[in-house]
């Protein structure tokens, strides 16, 4: 087991090198010379050369690549082109509002989806099951943008129940700002979550061991909660844990619409101002998160499933 974890940890290195390579190729090779864009049309060749020097673009491509790799380990991403701030500082500031929104929304939507899926699995094939399935598929077929726009307009603007936008630090002040985006997050997640959980649970229900449990005289609800759910939790845990890194990035669109100064907002601002260092930083940060939680999810998988053994 320890050996497996160490091996799995070591495997993160080539993956991180690969991720750095993608980011390097995109931002340092394909993108070409950014100085013309940064300085505007009237820049002299001299100014451009100075800026290149300043941004470290005079270094060989290999050294530039090494810089990216280094930043993936040190989280030292340099300075933003647009705001001139230190990027690691920006990330620290942005993380708080992002997590205020994403953590409660994520927890509530996961728990709610799980409850709904167990409920419909119990009544599988019945009217309520069909209704929930139709509801999920229909809900998933509406654009996220439409949900956000409509909810914001209707609940915040029309009815005035929530703040239209903005953010304030500190509990409980932030609640009135994050409540509506959190609701939208939940509405957006329930469709795909319930659909996945329900399929996983139903896959288990037709296994032989469930027939054995029935032949013991166990009541159906106990079979579902004890035998079936315990097996279904194995893929469900993987599915849930692997989503956690996306919490770091926050909800890009939600933060944008509701002017929440989180990491998602920072990313979109960087996008609009072609702020490459910030974009790179966000790409690396989210990838590292993804890799780490991928590892955690793999480890949890082995804990949840006694069949997997590592020597």
């Amino acid at each position: 087991m320890t050996k497996y974890i160490i091996r799995r940890l070591l495997y993160m290195i080539p993956v991180l090198l690969g991720v750095s390579l993608i980011i390097f190729v995109l931002f340092n090779v394909v993108s070409g010379d950014p100085t013309a864009v940064l300085l505007g049309k009237n820049a002299t060749a001299r100014q451009m050369a100075d800026l290149r020097e300043q941004l470290g673009l005079n270094k060989s491509l290999f050294l530039q690549y090494l810089d990216i790799v280094k930043s993936a380990f040190t989280f030292d991403f340099g300075y933003s082109w647009a705001t001139k701030q230190e990027i690691s500082q920006m990330i620290k500031q942005g993380a708080y509002p992002s997590l205020c929104l994403s953590i409660p929304a994520f927890v509530i939507s996961t728990v709610l989806s799980l409850l709904i899926s167990v409920f419909v699995a119990y009544y599988r094939g019945k009217g309520i099951d069909l209704f929930v399935r139709v509801f999920c598929i229909a809900g998933m077929s509406i654009s996220a943008l439409a949900y956000i726009l409509f909810f914001q307009w209707f609940f915040a603007y029309k009815l005035g129940w929530f703040e239209i936008s903005g953010f304030e630090e500190g509990f409980p002040n932030f609640i009135s700002y994050i409540a509506l985006p959190a609701v939208i997050w939940i509405v957006l997640s329930i469709g795909p979550d319930v659909r996945f959980f329900r399929t996983v649970i139903l896959d288990e229900i037709y296994q032989d061991y469930v027939r054995t449990a029935r032949s013991k005289g166990l009541p159906e609800i106990k079979i579902l909660l004890h035998h079936v759910l315990r097996n279904a939790m194995i893929p469900i845990i993987t599915y849930v844990v692997i989503q956690i890194p996306s919490l770091i990035l926050g909800a890009l669109l939600l933060e944008n619409f509701f002017s929440i100064p989180g990491l998602g907002g920072i990313t979109l601002n960087a996008l609009n101002s072609s702020d490459f260092p910030v974009m790179k930083a966000m790409a690396i940060l989210s990838s590292v998160g993804y890799i780490i939680f991928g590892l955690i999810s793999d480890i949890l998988y082995t804990v949840a499933d006694p069949r997997i053994k590592f020597k």
């Binding site: 991720v19 993608i22 995109l26 990035l249 990313t267 974009m279 989210s286 990838s287 993804y290 890799i291």
Partner: peptide, 10 residues
């Protein structure tokens, strides 16, 4: 490992 949305916008 790179979140889809980051890769897409990049």
């Amino acid at each position: 490992s790179v979140p889809n949305i980051m890769l897409l916008i990049s």
